[in-house]
């Protein structure tokens, strides 16, 4: 029996609370002797993502001050994100300045494809990393230096798991699901579809050749996120792109700032 408070010696892998206080009699000797080396407990209570969230908060305020709409595009590899991006840029670039941050483990192929459309793009290679984090994106924004009242598109690493947890400071996460992947993806990767505000169902021009049940897909997505906004489109045929561009236009208008006269 412990000589401090009379509690049992049985260790349960956790310190024992003693009527609102901390038990300091858990050292090797089972009691606390002033001046003797003894381990102590330190309350930390910090969210593991707090560092990332602090960087994301800085990014968000920097973007808001400049009236920049940032969208974080997430999907599996091969969902057609980069093609969708180039088509979106071609459609919108006459009306709004656009810049792009491309995230991939390796290569600058995607940033090269984006630059061919005439808009500035930087490639962030994560190396062994499976997602972009807010610190990388902050560095990317500073280097890109996007114009005021512009659109910043962030193409995350192709991965439906890890990017769900990392806030980059974006206005919304946009999840892209192509019909060749199967309608059950929202249930297989619920965290991502829960974190996203919008789901784009891409490659719908292929629907006649597939057994993709679009009704089920919508139902599954709404199970994990009742508020998710869903747009069906095909980057290839152009179907649905007007609705997607309209949604972006609406969001751009909401974050515009008044520019001071030069």
């Amino acid at each position: 029996m412990c000589t401090v408070c009379g509690c049992s010696d049985k260790r349960d892998g956790r310190y024992r609370k003693v009527k609102g206080g901390l038990h300091f009699g858990r050292g090797a000797a089972g009691l606390h002797v002033p001046g003797m080396s003894q381990s102590r407990l330190v309350q930390v209570e910090r969210d593991i993502l707090s560092k990332n969230d602090a960087y994301a908060g800085n990014n968000r305020s920097m973007l808001a001050e400049r009236g920049i709409l940032a969208l974080n595009l997430v999907s599996s590899p091969g969902s057609g994100k980069t093609t969708l991006l180039t088509r979106t840029i071609e459609r919108l670039k006459g009306g709004v300045p656009i810049s792009v941050i491309e995230g991939d483990q390796e290569t600058s192929f995607d940033a090269d494809r984006i630059r061919e459309t005439g808009v500035p793009a930087i490639q962030i290679n994560t190396g062994k990393g499976c997602h972009l984090d807010a610190r990388m994106v902050g560095d990317g924004i500073r280097q890109l230096n996007p114009q005021q009242n512009s659109l910043l598109l962030i193409e995350n690493v192709g991965n439906l798991v890890c990017p769900a947890s990392f806030d980059l400071g974006e206005a919304c996460k946009v999840a892209i699901l192509s019909v060749t992947e199967g309608e059950d993806k929202p249930l297989k990767y619920p965290d991502m579809f829960h974190a996203a505000s919008v789901m784009l169902i891409n490659k719908i021009d292929l629907l006649p050749y597939l057994e993709f049940d679009i009704g089920k897909c919508l139902d599954y997505a709404r199970r994990v996120n009742p508020d998710i906004h869903i747009i069906r489109l095909s980057a290839k045929s152009g179907e649905g792109l007007a609705e997607w561009a309209g949604w972006i236009g609406h969001k751009l208008a909401a974050c515009r700032i008044e520019l001071e006269p030069a």
């Binding site: 102590r40 209570e45 993502l49």
Partner: peptide, 11 residues
Amino acid sequence: GGMRVKELEVE
């Protein structure tokens, strides 16, 4: 929905 560092036993 979260994850945190609660506490440390230190010496």
